[in-house]
């Protein structure tokens, strides 16, 4: 019995010391970036969905690269953002649920997998069951917030250049 315990101890120690091959664990997490890459100042001014009064604000955010400093100086990052994102914003004017994000309409815009773990340092507590989710259009990440019925209630667009999208990893 003592021998068996010893071997287990050695094996665990070796593993902790990095002597054994370890299985890599893929953790798909989207960190919410600072304000110069996400437009919204606080979670209070997320843009409400369905998109009714906030459309112009989203268009502005996309045009100025989500950076209010660019807006302050009227420096655009995306040429003709209003036209480029028109169809997506048209869709967001209608009610949508979490499951709609997997539909063909949304897949045209967000071909990658849905990122389920959004790390937002501004959160007071860990998000519960209906936590926000994120999808990438290639340039920006769209973080969708939902209610207990999984209806999409608001959106925040963020730019996180250093994060891979799963679709791109396959290329």
């Amino acid at each position: 019995m003592r021998t068996r315990t010893l071997w287990i101890t050695i094996a665990l120690t070796a593993q902790l010391a990095g002597c054994c091959p370890q299985q890599p664990v893929t953790v798909t997490v989207l960190p919410v970036p600072p304000q110069d890459s996400r437009w919204q100042g606080s979670d209070q001014d997320r843009i409400a969905l369905p998109l009714v009064s906030g459309r112009e604000q989203v268009e502005d955010a996309l045009k100025f690269g989500l950076n209010r400093n660019n807006k302050e100086d009227n420096v655009a990052v995306v040429l003709n953002a209003k036209a480029l994102y028109k169809r997506l914003l048209d869709r967001l004017e209608k009610p949508a649920t979490f499951s709609d994000l997997s539909s063909d309409v949304f897949k045209q815009w967000f071909p990658g997998k849905i990122v389920m773990q959004i790390v937002d340092a501004r959160d007071l507590t860990r998000p519960g069951q209906h936590a926000p989710v994120a999808l990438s259009d290639g340039r920006y990440w769209w973080i969708f917030y939902r209610n207990a019925n999984d209806q999409l209630t608001s959106v925040m667009v963020a730019k996180v250049q250093a994060i891979d999208t799963l679709v791109e990893k396959d290329k």
Partner: peptide, 29 residues
């Protein structure tokens, strides 16, 4: 407003440079 060039393009890998861009269009309107 910072543009990334070829000699500092790799900064895109570092989150501190997230807001730097490859092109700007002016005036924005």
């Amino acid at each position: 407003h910072f543009l990334l060039g070829n000699h500092d393009f790799e900064l895109y890998r570092f989150p501190s440079y997230n807001a730097w861009e490859r092109r700007f269009f002016i005036p924005g309107d």
